[in-house]
Write a protein that binds this DNA or RNA. Structure first.
Lengths: 135, 135
DNA sequence: TTAAGTGTATTAGGTGATATAATACACTTA
DNA sequence: TAAGTGTATTATATCACCTAATACACTTAA
C-alpha cells in the first residue's frame, strides 16, 4: 500500500505483482492519459528507485520497456524523457487496447458469453453504480 | 503446443503460463460451456497427469481449485465429478465474468478509454473480421 | 479378504523469475 | 573537474512452480 508522488507521477506499489510491472503499468497509464506532458522529463532511475525504496535495476527494467513501447526516449547523460510525438502515444494506446480487448474477448468466450451478454452485465453494473465494488 | 484429448476434455498445454493454471482455465471453460456434462466423471488425477505427461501434484492443484469454485465434487475412493447443480455453474460464470469485466474496465480506464471507445474498437474489429489478427 | 483405483499428504530437490547489493563505465552538463 | 545521467556486470537471496518418490485412507469389485 505504498503511495508515492514523484514529480508529476504518482505510484502506488504493493507486493501483489512484480515491482517493475507496476512501475511500467502506472507510468504507461500516466503518459497515455496525459498526466505527464509530452516531452517532460521522467524521474531519473536513481531518484525513482530512492523514492520508491527499491533497487535501481528494477526501475531500469521498467524504463527499458517504456522505451520499447515508444513512450519515452533516453538521452545518455541527460535522462529519460516522455516522447514528444503524439502519434507514438496514440499508436501505443491503440495497440495495447487491442491486446486487452482480444484477451478479454477470449475470456468471455471461454465462459460461453456472447457480446450481448457482456453489454447486459455492463449496463447492470452501470445502473447499480454507486461506489459498490463488492468483490 | 501439446494437444490432448482426455475423455470428453480437450487440453492444449504449453509453457507460456503455469501448467496448473492452464488445466484450471480449460477445465473451467469446458464445464461452463457444457462441453462436459453435469455429473460426469472427470479424468482421475493420475490419468490426467499421465496423459499430459506432467506431475500428479500439478493436476491436484488445479483440481482443488475447481472444487473451491464449486464446479466439481470429490468422492474419496471414487473420483472427481462435475457438479450436478446448474446453479453452481451459473453462479460461477457470473462471478468470474464480473471479475474479468472489472479487470478489463480498469485496463481501459488506465489507457483513458471510455466505454464508447471500446464499443467502437469492437465494432471495427467485427467489420474487419476475417481471421486477421495482426498483432 | 484382497487388489486395484481413487483422492490426499509429505518430503526433497531443481529451475527460473524477481529483486537486491555493490561496483564500474560512458556520456552530458555546469 | 564534479555531479548527475543511463548502462552493464557479478553475486546473492527468495519465491513460485514443477517434479519425484513414497505413503496413507477410502471405495469398489473380484
Amino acid at each position: 500500500m505504498e503511495e508515492q508522488q514523484v514529480g508529476s507521477l504518482h505510484f502506488h506499489i504493493d507486493f501483489s505483482q512484480p515491482l517493475y510491472e507496476q512501475i511500467l503499468d502506472q507510468a504507461r497509464s500516466a503518459i497515455a492519459k496525459g498526466e505527464i506532458a509530452l516531452g517532460d522529463k521522467m524521474p531519473s532511475v536513481r531518484e525513482l528507485a530512492q523514492e520508491l525504496r527499491i533497487n535501481p535495476n528494477t526501475v531500469m527494467r521498467a524504463y527499458q520497456e517504456l522505451e520499447r513501447d515508444g513512450l519515452t526516449e533516453k538521452r545518455r547523460g541527460q535522462g529519460t524523457y516522455v516522447t514528444s510525438s503524439p502519434e507514438h502515444v496514440a499508436s501505443f494506446r491503440t495497440a495495447l487496447a487491442a491486446r486487452y480487448i482480444d484477451s478479454f474477448m477470449e475470456q468471455m468466450e471461454s465462459l460461453g458469453l456472447a457480446w450481448e451478454d457482456i453489454e447486459t452485465y455492463i449496463r447492470q453494473k452501470r445502473d447499480t453504480e454507486q461506489g459498490g465494488s463488492d468483490l
